[in-house]
């Protein structure tokens, strides 16, 4: 029997608040995998962004262009590559990582790393070179001065992390290929939505979609409020 759109939505909301363990385990998987991925990539990616903004070396612009290009790679392509590497006959087949959460984390790290690098590079470029020089002349060693610069760019860096997180929390392609959509283990929000929709079960899909929407709203409003009410230039 066809359900109307309204019925689907009502059903979805009921599902969310009824403590459906299947639904919440899916949300939990999504959250754990993506948080782990972002926590692993944040510091090294921001460091690379910092180096690209502060240190001149031959071929610097090529590295920047490369990361920009990587940012635009479709998630399924990353998924396919990782699949080939991790599958039993692949070079890392011994590790037996395919269809596991660690595989999903690796995939998401690969996906968000370029986003974090490019956006933190842009964030550091927005900082005046005098900030570095001021910190140095007042006695900061290089590491401390870098921390000061990161602190000056804190809001843009948070924005970069948010952009990286948005890329991975909502991506289907890679998680599907290397995670395998195993319920309670590697089924996350996007892969669940894809599956339920293909089965014609819309209410769970809508419920999970609502969770993603809420998450996006909460994160963005939080960032906006710590940043201030958006100063006019």
């Amino acid at each position: 029997m066809e359900m109307s759109l309204l019925d689907t939505c009502i059903d979805a909301i009921r599902l969310l608040f009824s403590g459906n363990t299947e639904l919440w385990s899916i949300i939990w998987v999504s959250f754990c995998v993506s948080m782990t991925a972002i926590l692993i990539s944040a510091v090294p990616a921001i460091f690379v962004g910092f180096l690209l903004a502060m240190v001149d070396f031959p071929g610097r612009w090529m590295v920047i262009a490369l990361f920009n290009a990587l940012m635009a790679i479709p998630t399924v392509v990353v998924g396919l590559t990782l699949y080939l590497l991790l599958s039993r006959s692949g070079p890392f087949g011994e590790l037996h990582l395919l269809f596991s959460q660690p595989a999903m984390v690796i995939g998401q790290v690969l996906l968000c790393f370029p986003v974090l690098v490019c956006m933190s590079h842009a964030a550091f470029q927005g900082i005046d070179r005098r900030a570095w020089e001021t910190a140095r002349t007042l006695g900061a060693h290089c590491g401390r001065a870098a921390l000061t610069i990161a602190c000056e760019a804190r809001f843009s860096l948070l924005g970069a992390m948010l952009a990286g997180f948005s890329r991975i929390i909502s991506e289907v392609g890679c998680s599907m290929m290397v995670g395998g959509n195993i319920l309670g283990y590697t089924r996350n929000i996007p892969t669940a939505i894809a599956l339920e929709t293909s089965k014609g079960e819309f209410s769970q899909g809508v419920a999970l979609g609502l969770v993603l929407l809420m998450l996006a709203l909460v994160l963005n409003f939080t960032l906006a409020s710590v940043r201030g009410k958006g100063q006019l230039i």
Binding site: R130, A131, E133, T134, A135, T137, G139, H141, C142
Partner: peptide, 27 residues
């Protein structure tokens, strides 16, 4: 890798850190 601790350079147009005056002076 610090610079000489007794030498300080002041910019033509000073850079101020994104915080209040006290924190800037205390840096």
């Amino acid at each position: 890798d610090r610079l000489h601790p007794d030498v300080i350079y002041l910019h033509q147009t000073p850079y101020v850190f994104m915080s209040n005056v006290v924190d800037n002076v205390a840096y």
